[in-house]
């Protein structure tokens, strides 16, 4: 094998190495990192959301029973990568519309419907005062456990919402009463409209992250 030959590095060589390093380093590190972190930057820094701010109809207040919560499946339209409606408009190629499916538990506070509910049936106009009364007594909660996101279920025998993963327990109002969860179930922003129906939007009293 030939002897190793170690030429001295001149000032211009050194400069050249620096230029090469700077070009390679800049173009091959910053854009790839930003590329991969796009959703993070858009959501965390620019405050955008994938979920469109729509109001989805849940059910009529008269259908919420006494003493137990009911579960609903609500789908919120989302724009994410190839499901983005702005992009589909541009390409003219429509893909399936993407949604995020949320499990929603709805119950009356402590299981007791307010007295005003007695006079309200489907199709009745609901007055402003009645709406206020109903709103104060209604719980609209996301079904994922505040601990690690497993779906909570209603156990009728003990009248509690139970998380099957690590045994988190919530009462009918979604308030944490036992197990490892750090807080109550996440509550939706909701409103009851004049037609007596409950509407919810994808907004919580905290960040459940996954739903």
């Amino acid at each position: 094998m030939a002897e190793l030959q170690k030429d001295p590095i001149t000032r211009s060589d050194f400069l050249g190495l620096g230029v090469i390093g700077a070009v390679m380093g800049t173009i091959l590190t910053i854009p790839p990192v930003a590329f991969v972190l796009t959703p993070l930057i858009k959501t965390e820094v620019e405050g955008e959301s994938d979920v469109l701010r729509t109001w989805e109809r849940v059910d009529h207040v008269a259908n919420i029973p006494e003493g137990e919560p009911v579960s609903y499946v609500i789908e919120f339209p989302i724009r994410q990568t190839y499901g983005d409606d702005r992009i589909q408009e541009e390409s003219g190629v429509s893909q399936q519309e993407f949604t995020v499916r949320n499990g929603v538990w709805v119950s009356w506070r402590d299981g007791q419907p307010p007295e005003v509910l007695g006079g309200i049936g489907e199709g009745d106009e609901v007055s402003r005062d009645q709406i206020e009364e109903l709103t104060q007594h209604l719980n609209v909660m996301n079904s994922t456990c505040a601990h690690l996101g497993c779906p909570v279920r209603w156990v009728a025998e003990v009248e509690e919402l139970l998380c099957p993963c690590h045994g988190g327990l919530y009462d009918i109002n979604g308030e944490h009463i036992g197990g490892p969860p750090p807080r109550d179930l996440y509550r939706y922003t909701f409103e009851i409209r004049e037609d007596g129906f409950i509407y919810i939007t994808h907004e919580f009293d905290g960040d459940p992250y996954i739903v």
Binding site: V36, P39, L40, E44, S49, D50, G83, V100, Y209, I210
Partner: peptide
């Protein structure tokens, strides 16, 4: 929060 948004590519689990 950053870890989650990086992993799921947005603020909800979806196509990304």
């Amino acid at each position: 929060g950053y870890v989650v948004n990086f992993l799921i590519g947005g603020d909800v689990i979806g196509p990304a």
